[in-house]
């Protein structure tokens, strides 16, 4: 099974990063073979909605689960629609976290675990509907 882990670096010996939308990169790990590759997060400097874009990017990777620290409501909604399991509150060395995941030590988050960020309502601006 392919899973994504938010990562502080590009090896299995790096740490799980607590961030999702603003994390530098993800490791896409095959849980059977422990083969992996790093995926840079293009949304790190996005305006509003970094979590949404990140979640969409991961859904295109066909991962079945995401291990991270925190996940807000918008990204959570996207993962849900894509049928991706979200596991929050994960920390420590990535290799260990993946092993724990394989052994079934984690349970899927039923709700987002952090309040909406600024991204929830966008970057503001002059936006207005005319009618």
């Amino acid at each position: 099974m392919k899973i994504a882990v938010s990562a502080t670096g590009k090896s299995l010996d790096d740490q799980v990063d607590a961030r999702l939308g603003r994390v530098q990169c993800f490791l896409i790990v095959d849980t059977e073979t422990m083969e992996f590759h790093a995926l840079d997060n293009a949304s790190i400097n996005a305006g509003g909605g970094a979590g949404i874009q990140t979640a969409q990017m991961l859904s295109e990777q066909n991962v079945k689960a995401v291990l991270t620290g925190n996940c807000g409501p918008n990204a959570f909604q996207v993962f849900n629609a894509a049928g991706i399991q979200v596991i929050v509150g994960v920390s420590g060395v990535i290799r260990t976290a993946v092993e724990q995941f394989k052994s079934g030590a984690f349970s899927q988050a039923a709700t987002p675990n952090v309040a909406p960020h600024s991204g929830m309502k966008g970057g503001g601006g002059m936006g207005r509907g005319r009618r």
């Binding site: 305006g47 509003g48 909605g49 949404i52 969409q56 996207v78 894509a82 991204g119 309502k121 966008g122």
Partner: peptide
């Protein structure tokens, strides 16, 4: 989703998700 500059609309697995709070009404 490609048109939206504000991530207010995304498509995953052929499903469209709208985030009204992010929409700038363009």
């Amino acid at each position: 989703a490609q048109v939206c500059e504000y991530s207010a609309i995304v498509v995953v697995k052929n499903k469209v998700l709208v985030f009204p709070g992010l929409c700038h009404s363009c």
